[in-house]
């Protein structure tokens, strides 16, 4: 199995080689090798349903689902955090009343998932999944626990930087996005082939939340702010009405 030094050389060789989105063909992330298309994406003008996104409403979600610290009978272990921000489209408009879903490891870096069997403890009081609808300003807020880093088997001594998975919808089907939010200053950034699959350093910055003391809640939780810009919309005003 390759060492981290071997991996880091591969990552280094591909720096800056892609655009602002991740390279789908990114061999340092071993699982991508047989799972990326080799043909170029075929550009089409969106039509019909592609000009619209599915709708979600208050009946789909309980408000309590945005608080990952109250899903079980007791208090979860770890550093309580607030993660808040806005979802906006490529023209700067807020994405209103739209679904945001998150999932993450617990404070020890363990996922509540059968496939995660690495020897870090599960926390019976933390499952690690939440969802909410954005407000009229595109805003979302989750109460949660800071996830831990965790090992994986991409190469010898591979560790993922702490992250929260985010799933987002826009107002067009074409804006669908699943991504990961990271925490500032993580020493694992340069070593991680998933983060580095975005080979443009400016684009990677967009995945890192900012510590925001104005979000920090006294005696309760540290605050992080992360705004998410989706791609542009395609509907004309006529179609909008």
């Amino acid at each position: 199995m390759e060492t981290q030094a071997d991996m880091s050389r591969e990552i280094e060789a591909l720096r800056g080689s892609g655009g602002p989105q991740p390279r789908r063909d990114y061999p340092p992330y071993r699982s991508s090798v047989l799972r990326h298309p080799t043909r170029d994406l075929h550009q089409v003008d969106p039509e019909g349903v592609e000009l619209w996104a599915p709708c979600f409403g208050a009946a789909d979600i309980d408000d309590a689902e945005a608080d990952l610290t109250i899903q079980r009978s007791g208090e979860p272990l770890g550093e309580r955090i607030v993660v808040t921000g806005r979802v906006i489209d490529g023209d700067g408009r807020p994405v209103r009343n739209q679904l945001v879903e998150i999932w993450q490891a617990n404070a020890s870096g363990r996922y509540w998932h059968q496939r995660d069997q690495h020897p870090a403890p599960l926390d019976p009081n933390f499952i690690g999944a939440g969802r909410c609808l954005t407000d009229d300003d595109g805003g979302y807020t989750f109460q949660t626990i800071k996830p831990g880093a965790y090992p994986w088997r991409n190469h010898l001594n591979a560790w993922r930087p702490a992250h929260i998975h985010f799933s987002l919808f826009g107002t067009d089907f074409t804006q669908r996005l699943v991504t990961q939010m990271y925490f500032p200053g993580d020493p694992l950034f340069d070593l991680d082939p998933i983060f580095q699959s975005v080979t443009d350093p400016k684009a990677r910055e967009l995945l890192i939340a900012a510590y925001d003391h104005s979000v920090t809640t006294p005696e309760r939780a540290l605050g992080y702010r992360w705004d998410i810009v989706l791609s542009g919309t395609h509907r004309t005003p006529l179609e909008e009405s």
């Binding site: 602002p20 989105q21 998932h113 998975h165 998933i194 684009a203 995945l207 989706l230």
Partner: peptide
């Protein structure tokens, strides 16, 4: 504007 990059859903979605 700069759009947020995607990232894999990973094994635990």
């Amino acid at each position: 504007m700069s759009f947020a990059p995607g990232q894999t859903v990973g094994p635990f979605f």
